[in-house]
Design a protein around this nucleic acid. Sequence first.
DNA 1: ACTAATAACTTGCAAAATGCAAGTACCGGT
DNA 2: ACCGGTACTTGCATTTTGCAAGTTATTAGT
Lengths: 115, 115
Amino acid sequence: MPVKARRSVCPISSALDVFGDKWSLLIIRDFFAGKTSYSEFLSSPEKISTNILSSRLRLLEEQGLVAVGEKSTRTGKPVYRLTEKGKRLHPVLDAIAAWALENIEGTEKLIAVGE
Amino acid sequence: MPVKARRSVCPISSALDVFGDKWSLLIIRDFFAGKTSYSEFLSSPEKISTNILSSRLRLLEEQGLVAVGEKSTRTGKPVYRLTEKGKRLHPVLDAIAAWALENIEGTEKLIAVGE
DNA sequence: ACTAATAACTTGCAAAATGCAAGTACCGGT
DNA sequence: ACCGGTACTTGCATTTTGCAAGTTATTAGT
């Protein structure tokens, strides 16, 4: 599947072509929180639906932000991981979280966006 | 019109409820580039359509990121401006642009995201 | 005052993305 | 062989987006 055409060469526009939707960055957030499996992503409080999760993981993989490891022979589950390119999004999530904590009432830092 | 229900109290999720789409942050980018009028936003290379621009400006206004000034008596045009809350998004745009310039081939810093 | 032009929208409708419920496939254990 | 759980896929209704074509208001020129 071809990577979708970008709208312009502007870095912000190009970045939004990659993760400019309501779900992609939440999945990335969950990666930073240590999640690696389908069911773990489904368990997040925002309740992503299975078809969206499946398609987003595929898109993120196509974009090179996520890699799917071999299914663990112990558990049989595929293991999803952030690539280096994906991990470099950490400052973006940091900036967004900082803005929201200051500017949107009722937001709370629940999960450590660690690493 | 009521502000849409947020999906969770997570700051990232809440922030995406505000600007998690393909267009909102591009409009914000244009504000930082000094644009203030409808036609200026339309002239950006990504070619937003008029109905989306109209509805996004309204949503951003409802969220308190954008304020509409009185129509200038000289030109008759409404003047759109970022509020302080909107201006505080500058670090977010900075982080996104920095990531894209490093991680997406063919992106170029075209407009000064100044202010 | 009349006309033309431009800016700022709104409307209608097709296309795509999202959301929900249900179903299928493939383990691993008993 | 059967069962339960995880990882999906499928079908379809709803919502959002995208494009083209209006509509309204103000300004610029004659």
